[in-house]
Amino acid sequence: MCSYITETAAIVGSAKGPDGWVNVTSANVYFDHPYHAPLDHALSIDFMSPDSSQRVAVELSAESARALVARILSALETGEAEHA
């Protein structure tokens, strides 16, 4: 079923879209039918510009999204230790 459940995170950073780099200040996260990925459901993240006029989007399988979360946490842990 199409879900209206969306998680939103405030973020600080930049993302590169078709028109180049933009500042992004929020990320909308949801698990629903994707638009493009050949999956029944996908973990989608929309990185949004401050005025929501620009979006950098990804659609990931549940399994790969979970793996990505682990790799992000791992990279943060080792990277922060390296740069401490």
Binding site: Y4, D46, S52, A57
Partner: peptide, 14 residues
């Protein structure tokens, strides 16, 4: 694009 507008509609709660 339709996908970007769908993202906006979702953000607005549908």
């Amino acid at each position: 694009t339709p996908d970007d507008l769908a993202a906006k509609a979702r953000t607005a709660g549908g």
